[in-house]
């Protein structure tokens, strides 16, 4: 069986990370699994975890009053779920639910923030890996807002 160090190192998010940094972040990591239908987290809850999906499919949903929940993104193998742990007030802004059996690495967000705070080189490394993901999602959101396939006015 693979140890958590190997699993973390093999995940694209941490791939190529300096071994000393890897030792640091691994102390924050554990393996988790979610059955289909199970929530990773729900809107308003404390954002205390970063999930790195190994295998599976997770849906992000926002509850809309008087209407069924809107599913606005799904994430799969090798992708990252949850960014609200990064900035105060550390609350989830949406629900995340497994829609098939999902295996992931759960990183304790408080632990990870602490390691980044006490070693800024590690912090910079983590932020450098997060930024392209955040920017990609921002651009995708812009495209969704433009509603490019929508009916003309």
């Amino acid at each position: 069986m693979k140890g958590i160090e190997q699993i973390v190192q093999e995940h694209p998010f941490f791939q190529g990370l300096d071994e000393a940094f890897c030792d640091l972040v691994c102390t924050c990591a554990r393996n988790v699994r979610f059955d289909s239908g199970e929530y990773l987290f729900q809107e308003g809850g404390v954002a205390d975890t970063l999930y790195l999906i190994r295998h599976g499919h997770v849906a992000l949903e926002i509850a809309v009053p008087g209407r069924p929940a809107v599913r606005f993104q799904t994430l799969g193998d090798d992708e990252l779920v949850g960014i609200s742990w990064l900035v105060p007030p550390y609350r989830w802004a949406y629900d995340a639910r497994a829609i098939e059996l999902t295996r992931a690495i759960a990183m304790d967000a408080g632990c990870l923030r602490g390691k980044c705070e006490s070693d800024h080189d590690l912090g910079y490394e983590v932020i450098k890996r997060l930024m392209p993901i955040l920017i990609g999602r921002l651009q995708a959101t812009r495209m969704q807002i433009l509603d490019v396939y929508g009916a003309p006015e």
Partner: peptide, 21 residues
């Protein structure tokens, strides 16, 4: 698809997200 209800089990997100997959 750009958005869906919770009965949709396929992918949700913009088409360009599919390229790296």
């Amino acid at each position: 698809v750009d958005h869906a209800g919770s009965d949709w089990l396929g992918r949700v997100g913009v088409a360009t997200n599919l390229v790296p997959l």
